[in-house]
Amino acid sequence: MPSEGTTVLEANALCLRFGAVETLKSVSLSVERGEIHAVIGPNGAGKSSLLNCLSGFYRPQSGAVRFLGKDISSLPPHKRAALGISRTFQGIQTYPSMTARENILSGFHLRMSTGPFAALVWWGPTRREEEEFAARAEKIIEFLELEQLRHTPVGDMSYGMRKRVDLGRAIALEPSVLIMDEPMAGMSNEEKEDLARFILDIREGLGIPVVLVEHDMEVVMSISDRVTVIDFGEVIACGTPDEVRTHPAVIDAYLGDAA
């Protein structure tokens, strides 16, 4: 559960329009330290648009995004990533010709302090930094149980393992919050169970809060601390999984008999 109620990431009254289409209508959301906060709703409800606003890919017409109390509404995605907002997407964003280890190492690029000229000679601070990142990558490989695949090209892996490598690269950013957009789409039940376990470990073992958009209600209700429900661009409910699953508006709009 959230610890001490400290807000890490916050959306305040976000309004997003594309022409005449109002995608988000004064949507607010807060992510606390130590929590998994799921965002659910029907297709087209505005869930991915909300994540894009949080991570900087969309700029809402009004409202604000705050990270650790600082207004970051004007910052582009790469600057938000440098602050500590990491993101995975619906599609796999790995480098298929590179190994699992190399993909994870690429996630450290925003944490590098030495420049390209120092890297050419590879001595002193550059060598120490590379060795440090290599050690951190090995810890992530062990954390995600990828030891047997560390030197395997990602393009030769199964879908579930590629998603796991994608997650590893996001963890390499050493984020203060992790945003995940439908991470279990297309996975088998066994792969979903593994990923759900890793998400819990990320929260509990690494202390990283997670914002999760996911359609698998069994997973959402079993691992989330709080759930925000969006329908037609508006928040219709927010609460614990038990509170949300019995909310009349949520049952009518989304869960139906599955509640």
Score class of each variant (00 low, 15 high):
214 E>C: 02
243 E>L: 01
69 G>A: 00
70 K>D: 11
25 K>H: 14
64 A>D: 08
104 I>G: 10
241 P>L: 01
25 K>T: 10
131 E>C: 07
121 V>K: 12
163 K>H: 04
127 R>W: 11
55 S>G: 03
102 E>W: 09
181 D>H: 08
216 D>C: 03
210 V>W: 13
61 Q>D: 09
175 P>Y: 05
222 S>C: 06
101 R>F: 14
88 T>R: 03
130 E>T: 11
116 P>S: 03
175 P>Q: 02
243 E>Y: 11
230 I>R: 06
85 I>Y: 12
166 D>K: 03
168 G>C: 06
175 P>L: 00
92 I>T: 10
148 Q>G: 04
45 A>Y: 14
180 M>N: 09
213 V>T: 08
235 V>L: 05
230 I>P: 11
204 E>T: 14
252 D>T: 13
249 A>F: 08
188 S>V: 03
82 A>Q: 15
86 S>R: 09
252 D>F: 05
160 G>F: 04
256 G>M: 01
178 L>R: 11
34 G>F: 08
256 G>F: 05
15 C>W: 14
236 I>L: 01
38 A>G: 12
54 L>E: 04
163 K>A: 01
43 N>V: 06
83 L>N: 03
228 T>I: 05
113 S>E: 12
28 S>L: 01
108 F>M: 02
234 E>Q: 15
158 S>H: 10
19 G>I: 08
197 R>H: 15
234 E>H: 11
103 N>A: 04
202 I>S: 04
138 E>N: 15
213 V>C: 08
44 G>D: 10
111 R>H: 09
49 S>D: 10
23 T>H: 07
251 I>L: 03
116 P>C: 00
177 V>C: 03
166 D>N: 12
255 L>N: 04
251 I>D: 05
127 R>Q: 14
242 D>P: 04
